Simulated scan of single mutants.
Amino acid sequence: MNIATRFLALLTLCAGLIGAGAASAGHHSEGEMTRPNIVEVAAGNDDFSTLVAAIQAAGLAEVLAGEGPFTVFAPTNAAFAKLPAGTLDTLLDPANKQQLVDILTYHVVAGKVYASDVVKLTTATTVNGADVSVKTSETGVQINSANVITTDIKAGNGVIHVIDTVILPGA
């Protein structure tokens, strides 16, 4: 089973477990059900055009548009521009799809983790399977070396926190 298939299976399992718990606890509000999903929210913001292109190239748009819930640490176009020259083009090459999937899934946590929850964490396990570090200080929150610049952008299937740097697994 390839990593993309395992990722889809993991997300389906997590979504089912979390969704069942949330539904039984009555956590879905009518407003959440009518909100655009994570992919639609990102696609509606010009600052995420590179992220949306990467999600589509990785074949993850349908997953991230699914039931969720998901928390996405979303790098802006400026964050992608910080990558070394040629890196983004290399990642978007279909021959490197698995590497792109690994990087993008490192930006996603199963469940809804709002800013009020993030500040209580020191680590979070991503759907990639690896942990990110969470550091909170009086100047803000960092996910690994990325600064969280906007929090709690609500979507029908989760929440987005905007970060200023692309985070890389194993870095």
Rank of each mutant, 00 (worst) to 15 (best):
I149F: 01
D47Y: 00
L88W: 03
Q56G: 01
P69N: 05
A85K: 12
V162A: 02
I38C: 09
A79P: 04
N147Q: 13
A53C: 06
A22Y: 09
L91N: 05
N45M: 11
A9G: 05
L100C: 13
L121D: 07
N147P: 00
R6V: 01
T71F: 11
V109M: 12
L83R: 02
D131A: 14
S49H: 08
L10F: 13
S116W: 10
K135D: 14
D117T: 14
T34V: 14
A15L: 00
V119L: 11
A74M: 06
K120A: 13
P84W: 06
G170E: 09
N128C: 03
K154M: 13
G44E: 04
I143G: 02
Q99K: 14
K120T: 15
Y106F: 15
L10R: 14
H107C: 10
N128R: 07
I3N: 05
P169I: 07
T90C: 00
S133Q: 14
H28Q: 11
L13Q: 14
Q98F: 03
E30D: 14
A95C: 01
Y114A: 14
V52E: 01
G158H: 11
I103T: 09
K82N: 11
C14V: 05
L168H: 01
K97Q: 15
A124E: 08
N157C: 09
V101S: 08
S145H: 15
S24T: 11
I103K: 09
P36S: 14
L13S: 15
N96D: 08
G86Y: 04
E62V: 03
A15D: 14
L11N: 13
E138I: 09
T105N: 06
A9E: 15
G129Q: 05
N45T: 10
A155T: 07
V52I: 11
L168T: 14
H27L: 15
A61C: 00
L121Y: 06
G26V: 06
L17G: 12
V141N: 13
A53S: 15
Q98N: 14
V108Q: 13
